[in-house]
Design a binder for these strands. Structure first.
Lengths: 208, 208
DNA sequence: CACCGTAGGCGTACAGGGTACGCCTACCAG
DNA sequence: CTGGTAGGCGTACCCTGTACGCCTACGGTG
């Protein structure tokens, strides 16, 4: 069995991640990644079937950085706090590589990292006495909320709140009075407040 | 001012939407849309700056189909029911064109359709006596949840619940016991239950 | 130590894709 | 009838992803 492979999947993934972080998602090209590695373009196809598989690798790498250990009772006493920590970890980790957000969230992925995250969340929910279908819905809701919130945060809030806060044109104000009003109120809400606030709503809903 | 434009933006948009619904997102090509309209490829650039703008047009068309009239008291008496109706409308409309989901959710859009939706939601929230920053967070949370849920639904649940439900391999079961258990419980939960269940959690959180 | 089969490595080439550019042509004012 | 204006589009270019086939390094065998 002559000639060992000279690259590892991990090298591939982090090279690709470097490219994305530097040149944005549009810059993620087989040629660019190959150049980053000092390898010929086609060399990549030794390690990856497809450009698709390369993207999957990037996503897995990013998601793999999520700390999925159960939050120790030291860090967070109540299950509410523990779930908040988990949600934050997901958001903060993905937020470290903003350009990969569309990738991570659009891709049809069956990520083991997300499965580990889900497993820990389910364990916390179980500890809170939430079971059966109720627990299924809780997990999906938390995940759905986190995904959507990350997206809104990084792709420019389509609610228009941010934009309206900076440019409250009177035309907009008259057609969307509530939106204009909310834009003003939104000025006092940080991204973090917003994210954690939404998590709190869900958790309130879970609390009997 | 000789020669009127022979196409309207609406024609462009619906041709593009036809292409997407037929050939999937990958089939959305300047050439394909042009062919659909019986026009030369470059003809499209009379109406659209960019492929990007074409995609925006598609997104706006889909989102424009959302009914953003306030749900009449006839349809839904309580504000909870009204908000549920609004969330459902968003989800159901986007679900009509599944291929556009990555587009609608990935794109950095400042959609007037979403603004109209937001305005109506804010009005309902105001009617429920929810004001100020609390209302901002409520809107963002509902929107974030809806976006994430739509995504999970159409891009293959990354929680793996669906996959696990059909293939509960023992290896997975032992490594992810809670996930395996939840997969079984998930079998009894329909997509609709799941979506509305998450909305209910948020609304419970909003109810004092 | 020579050799050769095997499997990794990569250069070339091609089929799409987006779009810049410039000519052609239909229309309307005079 | 005619000239100018602005829409319409064919051509051509560059940039992707990737199929294909040669080249080369290695390690077991004689």
């Amino acid at each position: 069995m002559p000639r060992r492979p000279s690259l590892t999947h991990l090298q591939l993934a982090s090279a690709a991640l470097d490219v994305v972080d530097r040149d944005g998602l549009a810059g993620l090209t087989m040629r660019a990644v190959a150049a980053q590695l000092g390898v010929s373009t086609m060399g990549l196809y030794r390690y990856v079937q497809d450009r698709d598989e390369l993207e999957e690798l990037v996503v897995e790498t990013v998601l793999g950085e999520i700390d999925t250990d159960p939050p120790g009772p030291g860090d967070a006493a109540s299950w509410r706090e523990q779930l908040t920590v988990m949600a934050r970890r997901l958001r903060d980790t993905v937020g470290t590589h903003p350009s990969t957000v569309p990738l991570a969230l659009t891709r049809r992925y069956r990520s083991t990292a997300i499965m580990r995250w889900s497993e820990t969340v389910l364990a916390i929910l179980a500890g809170a006495g939430i079971d059966g279908e109720r627990r299924v819905i809780a997990l999906r809701s938390l995940l759905a909320y986190a995904i959507g919130a990350i997206q809104l945060e990084h792709l420019g809030g389509p609610s228009g709140l941010d934009a309206l806060a900076t440019v409250p044109s009177s035309a907009v104000s008259s057609e969307f009075p509530f939106l204009a009003d909310s834009a003003a109120a939104a000025a006092g809400v940080t991204r973090d407040d917003e994210f954690v606030g939404g998590v709190a709503l869900l958790l309130d809903g879970l609390t009997p």
